Structures are given as structure tokens and as C-alpha cells.
Computed example of a mutant assay.
Amino acid sequence: MTSTENTSPSIPPFDENNLLPPYRTDRYDVMDNFHDEYLSPFKCTLLELCERFATSKERVEILKGLYFFRKAMFNHNILLGYQWLYGSFTENIEAIENRSPNDMDVATFYEGPPDTNEAHWKKVFPEFVSNTLSKEKYKIDQTSYPILVAPPSHIIHVDIVSDLIQLFTHTRKGVWKGILRLELNTPEEDEKAINYLNSLQL
């Protein structure tokens, strides 16, 4: 299987378990305190994600699916929010299970345009609210979590996020691991990513 050890300044190397670490032990400040960028979810751009993980044909196809999914979100005016990336795609699954990843697990936290709800998305963008459809079309296992900035909705959001971070940052065997974060509405950076993917010869 192809190695997934390309380098990226924003994404730490795999640990001894072939997982992203939950925090970076290689970067402390002089007071031995962590900065936000040293903690999971690690923020990165789509280009940085591609530079790190586009190491096989299977992974390139999944990354292209993520690009087109994000482009569809942009076209539907889903611009505020971020995505968490987790699961076998962000692990060295080639070494762990001697296989390529089948898809990418994605959680999208978003504030949509006014007067939109799940019924609206089912009509105009069904892949956004159906992980079955998103896997079929984009090779991503996608779940959407609508959020609002104004209280009291932000309290509900905090509760949801605290539950999900525990779920997404542990393997089925209970091993602690890191995940990644992508901001929404970065079309210029995303175009650099797809150009990078199209330039690869694997």
C-alpha cells in the first residue's frame, strides 16, 4: 500500500498508532502552553489536505469528491461554518488494515441562508442531508449540523460539539486520535487544491 507520509506544516505526522495525534508534543511555547493550532481539530486548507493525503489513486478520487461537494455547498450559498474530517481517510489505514480508504467522514457545521431547513435541502441539494447520497456521488460520508450564532442556539451547539468531539477523536478500540478542520467559503484555495490533484500522476 502507498505511504501517507507526505509533509504538511498544518497537519502533524502520524503517531506510533498510525493516527493523527490529539495534540502536538513537538511544538510548545516558552511557557510550555499549547496554542490552538497545536490541538485537534487541526486547522488546514483543502490544498494542505491534498498535499498531505493525495498519495494514491483511491485517495485522490475521495479528495476530488470533497472538492466538488464543497463547490456544491458554495453554489447553494452555504458559506458560514466549518467541516471536521475524521475516520480512516485521516489515518494511515494502509498500514493499519492493509487497505485503501473507501470514503471520507465529514461533519459540516453550518449556518445556512435564511428560510432553509432539511426539507429545503432534500429538494435542492439532497446529498447535503443524506450520507447515503453523499457517499454515492462524492465519496464522503457527510453529516450536516445546522448552527445559529444567536443564543440560546449556541448553547445547544456547544452541547452537540462536545459530544461529537468525543466520538470522532477515538477509535473503536478507544485510542485517542486527532481530526482535521476545514473552513467553509474558501473558493480560491479550493481551486488550488483541485489543480494540484489534477496535476498528479499516480
Rank of each mutant, 00 (worst) to 15 (best):
L49K: 07
D141W: 01
A72M: 13
R27P: 00
V161D: 00
L167I: 15
S130L: 10
V175C: 00
E94G: 15
E136D: 14
I11W: 08
H35A: 13
A119Q: 14
T132E: 14
P113C: 00
M73K: 03
I96H: 04
D15L: 07
L197F: 11
I11A: 08
L148V: 03
V106H: 05
S144W: 11
E91I: 01
E16I: 13
S134K: 03
K177H: 04
T90K: 01
V161M: 08
Y86V: 01
M1G: 10
C50H: 08
I62D: 01
T186H: 09
L200W: 07
E188Y: 13
R99P: 03
H170P: 02
L167H: 12
E16G: 00
P13A: 08
P12R: 07
F74G: 00
L200H: 06
P41F: 11
A72K: 15
E189R: 11
F74P: 00
N102Y: 06
G65Q: 07
R24G: 00
K122F: 00
G112V: 09
P101C: 08
A193T: 08
G174V: 05
H120V: 06
R59V: 03
L39Q: 13
I93K: 01
Y138T: 02
P113V: 08
I179G: 02
Y82K: 07
H120P: 01
L180S: 02
R59I: 03
T116W: 04
G174I: 05
R181N: 05
N92C: 11
R99G: 01
I11F: 09
F53R: 01
N75W: 01
L148N: 12
